[in-house]
Design a protein around this nucleic acid. Structure first.
Lengths: 150, 150
DNA sequence: ACATAAAGGACTGGATTAGTCCTGATTGCC
DNA sequence: GGCAATCAGGACTAATCCAGTCCTTTATGT
C-alpha cells in the first residue's frame, strides 16, 4: 500500500515532541506523552540516536534531546533512520543483486527515476513543516481530499 | 523500507510489455515473456483490468491489451491499482478510523502534505518514461528482443 | 460441442514487522 | 562508595501482511 512502518510514525511524533520540550526528556516520559508503549519508544529513540537525529545523555537525569532543530530535519531522514534506505523495489538495492528474471525484465533498473523523485519530495519537507500547520485536533482529514487523489 | 509490493513491479513490466506488443496477448504469453509465474501474472492482470489500465477480451483468441498508451499511464495509477490508495500512514486512511493515541499525537493528520508530495511526484512519471531507455544498453536487453521471446 | 481464455474468490506458506525482554554500561546523587 | 536512574544493544516472540497457488465459473471463437 506504499505505506511506511508504524515506527516511523512514532519517530515523527517523538521528534516533534522533543522539539517542543526545553531540556532533555526521558524515554518513559516521552512514551507517556505520546501514548505509545515505553519499550517501543525506546527502540525508536535508539534508532534515531544512531543516526544523530537525537542526542542522548546517559546516567541519572539523562535523557534525549534533538540533534538539530526540527526545521532542519527532513522527513526522508527520519524514514531512512527507521526504515532504511528509500528504494521502492528490490531491483535497485544492492549492486550485486541478481534478479531472477533479470534477463527478461523490460524495466529493470527503470525505477531509479521514481525513487529519485520520491527522495526529492521527501527531503523538501521538514518536521517543522509537519509540526507547524495547525489542524485543529478535532477534525482529521476531510475524506473528500483522499478520494479525490487516490 | 518504504518499498512497494513486488506485484506492482510485475505490473509495470506487464504493462510495458503490452505496450510493445501489437495485438492482444494472453496471460500465459505475458508470463513467459517476463519470466514470472503465470498465476501471479494473471492476478496482476485482473487488478489492472479492474482499473481500466488494460482491456480484456474473453474466450478463445482473447487476451489483454492496453487501455491507453503508456505515455498516459502514470506510475501512481499502477500503484493505486495494485496496492491501493497511496497513504503513508494509517492515520489518514479511513475517515471513521480512531487512532488510539489520537488525543495525544502531536502530528495527527500532518502526513497529508507528505502524501500529497508523493502522489504528485508519482503522477508526473509515466510508464513511457520508465520504458524509455535510461540505462545503457549494455546492461539490459534491448527492447527489440522482447517480441522475439513470445 | 469443444477448446481456449478471462473473472473471481478462497486458501496457504513464508516473510516482514511490531513489540517485549534481558543484560550491560554510564552517570548523578546521597 | 554505593545506589538508583537511564541509555545501549541484542535476542526472542507473536502477529500481521503479502506473494503465490488453486478451483470454479463465465464468455467466445472454431
Amino acid at each position: 500500500m506504499l505505506k511506511l512502518s508504524r515506527l516511523t510514525d512514532y519517530a515523527v511524533a517523538v521528534l516533534v515532541r522533543l522539539g517542543m520540550a526545553d531540556g532533555v526528556e526521558t524515554s518513559p516520559g516521552i512514551a507517556a506523552g505520546i501514548g505509545v508503549p515505553e519499550p517501543t519508544v525506546a527502540k525508536v529513540l535508539k534508532a534515531l540516536a544512531g543516526h544523530g537525529l537525537v542526542l542522548s545523555t546517559r546516567g541519572a537525569r539523562g535523557g534525549y534531546r534533538l540533534g538539530k532543530p526540527l526545521a532542519h530535519i527532513a522527513v526522508s531522514e527520519v524514514i531512512v533512520a527507521i526504515d532504511g534506505p528509500i528504494a521502492l523495489t528490490s531491483c535497485v538495492e544492492g549492486a550485486g543483486m541478481t534478479c531472477e528474471s533479470q534477463s527478461l525484465c523490460p524495466v529493470a533498473g527503470r525505477w531509479d527515476p521514481v525513487n529519485e523523485a520520491i527522495r526529492s519530495a521527501l527531503s523538501h519537507i521538514s518536521l517543522a513543516d509537519m509540526a507547524a500547520a495547525s489542524i485543529p485536533a478535532a477534525f482529521r482529514i476531510p475524506a473528500t481530499k483522499i478520494n479525490e487523489v487516490a
